[in-house]
Amino acid sequence: MMVAVIIENPIRGSYIERPNRFTVAVHVDGERRLAHLRDPGRLRELLIPGNDIILRKAPPGNRKTEFDVIALRRGDEWVLVNSGFHSDLAAIVMESSAVDEFQGFRIEKREYSFGRSRIDFLLASEDERMLVEVKGCTLVRRDLALFPDAPTERGRRHIEELEHALSEEYRSSVLFLVFGKGARFFSPNHEMDPEFSSALRRAHEAGVNVIAHSMATDLNGNVLVYPLRRISVLWPDESP
């Protein structure tokens, strides 16, 4: 049985522009509306005027945006661009049998404070603890997924915290959720952020697990987002 995150009552629209980092203007039913974009990346391959967009009505409250952005179209597929669902998707991956590194561990706590950061998950087994940081990756070129699509000092700090945790008797993993059905490989985007790329490689060489897992986003009445497969990690000086 497929396990998926289900997002109900989607609304179709089209993308107009991005007035600021977390707000986009969209056409819905022929009118210009504002929607909250919960993804700090540049998303240049997705935020194209006229591109199809999936929205959800925002919950009641005092906010300027009427909708939340859920997904954008890329070719013949939808791409999730809402980090609010990453935690539940990561939990599905970790609780499945798809990734050997998570076998024997259970989720102990979400949003675990460690050092100067809040790490997405603390896992526990009978005699070990593991920190897991989750990153969403939307940039896919042919079969290669790249992260990040914009420089990320915060992301680099998380990786450094995971490496430091090894010295305090934690195991550590970073899980990249790759939103693209065609992705077969993952690589840090050294051209975009060499500091993040170098930090990730150092952490990997120190013992941090670097795991990438592709995800699919389907629209069939509701939006379904579900894991596909683990994909190989390549480093910038390697090729498929």
Rank of each mutant, 00 (worst) to 15 (best):
W235M: 09
D127I: 08
V134I: 13
A35Q: 01
P194K: 11
E133V: 05
M130E: 07
D127Q: 06
L55S: 07
F114A: 07
S239D: 14
T152L: 09
T217H: 08
E31S: 15
A71M: 12
E8M: 01
R44D: 02
A91T: 13
R106M: 12
G155P: 11
L72Y: 00
F22K: 11
A183G: 09
V69S: 04
A91S: 14
N222F: 02
A183R: 00
I6V: 15
G182P: 11
D120Q: 13
D127A: 01
L37F: 14
Y15P: 02
R141D: 15
E108V: 07
A124Q: 09
E95L: 14
E168N: 06
S125I: 05
A98K: 00
R106S: 15
F22I: 11
L72F: 12
F85P: 03
F105A: 10
A216Q: 09
V140I: 12
R74K: 15
L46S: 14
R38L: 08
G104R: 14
T65C: 01
P10G: 03
R33G: 01
M1A: 08
E45C: 03
E195C: 07
E238V: 06
L46M: 15
I6K: 09
W235S: 07
W235H: 06
R202K: 15
A90L: 06
V81T: 15
V178Y: 05
E66G: 02
D149G: 12
S96W: 10
E160P: 04
L200R: 11
A35E: 05
A145L: 05
G50H: 06
R201C: 03
S197V: 13
H86A: 14
S197W: 02
R18D: 10
I107A: 10
S14L: 00
H213P: 03
L47Y: 02
G182N: 11
P19D: 08
E77F: 03
F196G: 00
E8F: 00
S97P: 01
V81A: 07
L219W: 04
K181P: 06
S214V: 13
F186L: 11
D149L: 03
R156N: 00
